[in-house]
Amino acid sequence: MMASRAVVRVGIALFLIVSAVVIAAGANPFSVAWNITRTPFESVSNFEQYLLALTPLLLVSCGLAIAFRGGLYNIGADGQMIAGAIVGGGVGIELSGAPRLVGVVAVLVLGAVGGAAWGALSGVLRGRYGVSEVLSSLLLIFVADFILRYLVRDPWRDGFLPQSARLPESTKLPELQVVDVHIGLLIALAVVPLLWLLVDHTPFGFRLQALGASEEVARASGIAIARTATVAMALSGACAGMAGVIQTVAIEGRIVQSLNSGLGFTAIVVVLVARMRALGVLLASAFVVMLTVGGETVQRSDGLSAFIVPMIQAVAILVVLVMDQQGRS
C-alpha cells in the first residue's frame, strides 16, 4: 500500500514537472503527449521514418540482450557500432566495381566482423583476466571514436567536411517493395527470433544463462567461462557493428564523424526494461523509438525546444519503469 501510494506520488510529481516545463515553453502538455504517440503512425512517410529509426536500435538491443543474459554488461555498443562502420564502410568505399549482391553482403558481414572484434576484445579481457567488461567496453568507445575521427579527418577525407567519399552504388542496401525502407529492417526483425532461439534453445544459450545467473556455478560446472564470455561479447558486438554499418551505408551514404550517438545507452534501457527477453526487446524498442520520432515532430508542430524532447523521453521511460516495478511486486 505504502509503495503504491509512493508510486502515484512520484508519477504525479514527474508528470507535473514535465507539464510545467512544457507549459513554460508555451505548449499544451496534452497535445504534446498525443502528438508524440500519434505522429509516427500518421502518414506513410512518418512511419517509414519510424521504421528507419527502429532498425539500429533493435539490432543493438538484441546484441546487448545476448551479452546481458550472460551477465556481461556491455555498455560499449557505441564503440562496436563505430568499429563496424569503420571496417564495413572502409572496405565498402573500395567496392565500386563489385556486383551489388557482393557489395551489400560484404559490407554487412564486415561491419558485423568489425563490431564483433571490438566486442570480443572486452570479452577476452573479462574472461581471461577478469577486467570488468563495463569499463573496458566503455573506454573502447572513446578509442573507437578517436580512430574514426582520425580516419575521416585525414586519410579518408573527401572534401571540406570531416567525412569520407560517398559509398559506391554497389553497397547501397536494397529497398523493400512495400514501404520505402532498406532491408536493414528485415535483418533487425530477423535477429529477434534468432535471439530467442540462441538464448533459450541452444546449449550455448544455456551455458550463457548459467554464466549470467552465477559465474561461480558455471565455472564449477565445467563451463568454459572465457570462451563463453568472448563469444557472447563478439555476438553482441556483431549486432552493434552491423547496426553501425547499416547506418553508414543506408542513412549517411558515407562514413561520418558523428557516429557516437549514445544509441548504445538507449539500448541498455531497452534491454533492461524488456528484462532481456526477445519479444520484450521488440516492444521496448518500438516504444522508445516512438518517443524519439514523435518527439522530433513535436518540436516542429508544438514549437518546443529541441532540448525538451529528451527530457520528456527520460520521464516517460522512468514512469514505465515505475509502473513495471509495481506490476512485479
Partner: peptide, 27 residues
C-alpha cells in the same frame, strides 16, 4: 527515491537521469 524507495534498477535509472539532467540543463 526511484532506486531506494521504489527499488528500480540502479543502472537504468542512472542512465535515464543522465539523459534527464543533461537535457534539463541544456534546455
Amino acid at each position: 527515491a526511484l532506486t531506494i524507495n521504489l527499488k528500480l534498477d540502479q543502472i537504468v535509472t542512472g542512465i535515464m537521469l543522465v539523459l534527464l539532467g543533461v537535457s534539463c540543463s541544456d534546455f
